Amino acid sequence: MPPRGPAPAVPLDTAAVALYLGHYRSAAPRQELTSIANYLAGSGNLRRQGNLLLVEPLIGKAGTLLPTGQLTFRLPNQQTATIVLAQDKEGRRVLITSMPIAQADYALAVGFWWWLPPALLALSVLLIITSSLAALVGLVRVLRHKLPRAQLLPRLLPLLALGALATTAWGLASLIGHLTTDGHLSTVASVAASLGPLVFVACTVAGLVLTVRYFGRFRRPAVA
Rank of each mutant, 00 (worst) to 15 (best):
W115M: 10
T180A: 12
H145W: 12
R93H: 14
T187N: 12
A109K: 09
A164Y: 04
A107L: 13
G183N: 00
L143G: 14
S186D: 10
A104G: 07
P118D: 07
S132T: 13
T181I: 03
H184L: 09
R149D: 14
V94E: 07
G138T: 10
Q151V: 05
L136I: 07
P117L: 02
L139P: 07
A164W: 02
D182A: 06
P154R: 04
A173N: 13
D182L: 05
A104N: 08
T97R: 12
T167W: 09
H145I: 06
M99K: 11
G171Q: 02
R155W: 12
P158G: 00
G163L: 05
I96Y: 06
A119D: 01
L165M: 10
R149C: 07
A166D: 04
L159A: 10
P158Q: 01
P117K: 04
P118C: 00
A134T: 07
L133T: 02
L160A: 14
R155N: 15
L185Q: 14
G177D: 08
V94F: 07
S186L: 00
I176D: 08
S124H: 15
L136Q: 03
T97C: 02
S132E: 02
H178K: 11
P117G: 05
V140W: 12
I128P: 01
G91K: 03
H178Q: 15
W114Y: 13
M99I: 01
G177H: 13
R144Q: 14
L156P: 00
L156I: 04
L95T: 04
G111E: 08
T130S: 15
V142L: 06
A122I: 09
L120Y: 01
K89P: 04
A134P: 01
H184E: 11
I129F: 10
W113Q: 00
L179D: 03
P118A: 05
L95M: 14
K89Y: 11
I129L: 15
Q151M: 15
P117Y: 04
D105Y: 07
A119W: 05
F112H: 09
W113V: 02
L152V: 06
S131M: 09
L175C: 04
L95H: 11
Q103I: 07
E90V: 01
D182T: 10
P148N: 08
T168G: 12
G91N: 08
R93T: 06
K146I: 03
A109P: 00
A104F: 03
L127I: 11
S131N: 08
S124N: 12
A169D: 01
L160G: 09
R155T: 13
I129C: 10
G163D: 00
D105H: 01
S174E: 15
S98A: 14
A107G: 06
L116Y: 08
L162V: 10
A161S: 10
I96P: 01
M99W: 07
R92S: 11
A135N: 10
V125D: 06
